[in-house]
Computed example of a mutant assay.
Amino acid sequence: MAIDNTPMLVPHLVVDGAAAALDFYAKAFGAEEMTRLPGPGGKLMHAAFRINGHMVFVNDDFPEFCDGRSSAPTALGGTPVTVHLHGPDVDGRFQRAVDAGATVVSPLEEMFWGDRYGVVRDPFGHHWSLAETVREVDMNQVLAEMNADG
């Protein structure tokens, strides 16, 4: 096996219930599981999956390895990070996520920047924005719209 040091940027999600999260991400976003490494007590130390051809890591929360502090959004009272999924059929993809158990944070709307865009929260506390570009918009128009709201 050859060593592969291809540069990457990979989101790494911490959850309570990584095995269930893998199942949810498959149902909601069409995630394809790549790796699953079990850890102590039935938890997952590491897992990897692909969505839209891009890798995402996930693991169970292990406070004992983080100075005794939980890193899961449920323990932190929410998440400051949103994972963004862009592509065709945003209405179908959004509904698929909701049908799989996601909660709507912001419903799908046509936005002034040219995307149909909405946000869901997965059952583990992470936010996912879904979008599809529906019209081309000049950046000056976008700036004018932003300034008109302020």
Rank of each mutant, 00 (worst) to 15 (best):
A26K: 15
A18Y: 00
P80C: 10
S70R: 10
G77P: 09
A100G: 08
A97P: 06
M139D: 09
P107A: 12
P7K: 01
V90W: 04
G101K: 03
E33Q: 15
Y25I: 01
H12F: 09
I51S: 13
K43W: 06
M146L: 04
G39P: 06
D23G: 04
G118H: 04
F65Q: 06
D89M: 02
F94V: 09
R121S: 15
A102C: 14
A48D: 01
P11T: 13
V105Q: 11
D138A: 02
V137C: 06
G114Q: 09
C66I: 10
A72M: 05
G125I: 05
Q95G: 03
Y25C: 05
D138L: 02
S71H: 14
D115C: 05
A20G: 08
A148P: 00
R50D: 15
R69T: 10
A18V: 10
A100K: 11
G42T: 09
M146T: 04
S71K: 13
E109Q: 11
L22R: 05
D115H: 01
L13Q: 05
A31K: 01
A20R: 07
D23H: 02
A144K: 07
P7Q: 09
N140Q: 14
V105W: 04
S129A: 09
Y117V: 00
R69G: 14
A131K: 02
A20E: 14
R135G: 02
K27Y: 14
D99K: 08
P88C: 00
